[in-house]
Amino acid sequence: MSAPRHWQVHPITAALRPPSEPRSTGNDDVADQLDRVLQEVHSLPSGYFAARITVDANEAESTDSSESAGV
């Protein structure tokens, strides 16, 4: 089972450029805040749907086998 096309969203992953130094006014506090933003771990759009589809497929299979066993 695959996700519908409009669910198939994924971030660009190509390493397009070397990590950049902050293009900043030289304010250390701004540079630190930008660093922290890059260190945050955010969920990826495709990750949820992949997991959800696996759960749905497993549940469907489990229901089918229960029904066929007359449970």
Binding site: P11, I12, T13, A14, A15, L16, R17, P18, P19, S20, E21, P22, R23, S24, T25, N27, V30, A31, L34, D35, L38
Partner: peptide
């Protein structure tokens, strides 16, 4: 002000 990481 901005900066990038290697994953875009």
């Amino acid at each position: 002000d901005h900066r990038t990481d290697s994953e875009g």
